[in-house]
Design a protein around this nucleic acid. Structure first.
Ligand code: MN
Ligand code: MN
Ligand code: ZN
Ligand code: ZN
Lengths: 148, 148
DNA sequence: AAATTGTTTAGAATCATTCTAAATGTATTG
DNA sequence: CAATACATTTAGAATGATTCTAAACAATTT
């Protein structure tokens, strides 16, 4: 039965992520890791994850969600990013990439790094090196009233 | 005397910005507007502005700094942006542009829009339109130990 | 199984920001 | 140039996301 095999594999992946961060395996961490690391990449806040877990009847305190997200981030399993001043988002995709932001939905979608070609027409300032280049593209539903 | 003429011009610019936002001219707003709108573009937090003003012996409450920055932002004179979860930054440059971020200094420098050429190798999702494209480039001091 | 070490938790603390309501300032009117 | 209306400033309280504290609990080592 393929269904149970996938379930097992997702669990294994989650466990290996926790252990790769040098953290003990606990039910709370496993529940978080499964939601974060099995399935498509996510862009999510601590509060959102906490409600997801509550909805799934996983008992976990908000403090533990924060602790775990921060430790995953320090271990390089997540990346934290910021789009408004009152909440942090965590990105499960830690490779260099860009983002579409759907304004109406408030949702992010990854843009693979080689979907964009960025050409510097002026070189970066002397004495500096470029550590990262991130593009943030705001999208909205097509507005057909925008006729030329 | 050129010095006093520049001073007067900066004041006039500040006044016209306040009035273009449909706001009454007050000493607090004038002090803020002068520091924001005369001189090179800035990327600054409310607290930073508040200390600058305190240092210059301008008496203004932090609440007024926040109120004014928010009203300037709503009027399109400033743009708010976010780089960490605990403070908002305000950008005096409201035209589309990109940013260098000097990691060691925690400072931002504008990159004119046509210093970068961005080519989409895949078109944006059907039914959506691109509202803005912003590039954020992290810079650090050259690390000569990075030899190939 | 005792001892050690790591984890979770509730609730308190922190801190940027917003809100409240009273005092003060600016504009308008007669 | 009062009197009134309306806008702004302010101190301090409230809010809300995040972090901290310290006690209970769980996992690991001996
Ligand atoms: Mn953090
Ligand atoms: Mn704001
Ligand atoms: Zn992403
Ligand atoms: Zn800028």
């Amino acid at each position: 039965m393929k269904y149970n095999k996938n379930r097992k594999n997702r669990e294994k992946l989650a466990i290996s992520q926790i252990q790769s961060a040098g953290m003990r395996l606990t039910p709370q961490r496993l529940a978080l890791a499964k939601r974060l690391f099995s399935g498509p990449d996510r862009h999510i806040t601590a509060e959102e994850l906490h409600s997801e877990l509550k909805y799934a009847d996983v008992r976990i305190s908000l403090a533990t969600v924060y602790n775990t997200l921060n430790r995953f981030t320090n271990a390089g399993l997540l990346r934290e990013f910021f789009v408004d001043s009152n909440q942090s988002y965590f990105d499960t995709n830690t490779e260099p990439h860009h983002h579409f932001f759907y304004e109406e939905l408030g949702k992010f979608v990854d843009v693979p790094i080689n979907n964009l070609n960025i050409e510097f027409l002026t070189s970066p300032p002397k004495g500096t090196q470029v550590d990262s280049v991130e593009v943030f593209i705001k999208l909205s539903k097509v507005d057909s009233s925008n006729k030329k």
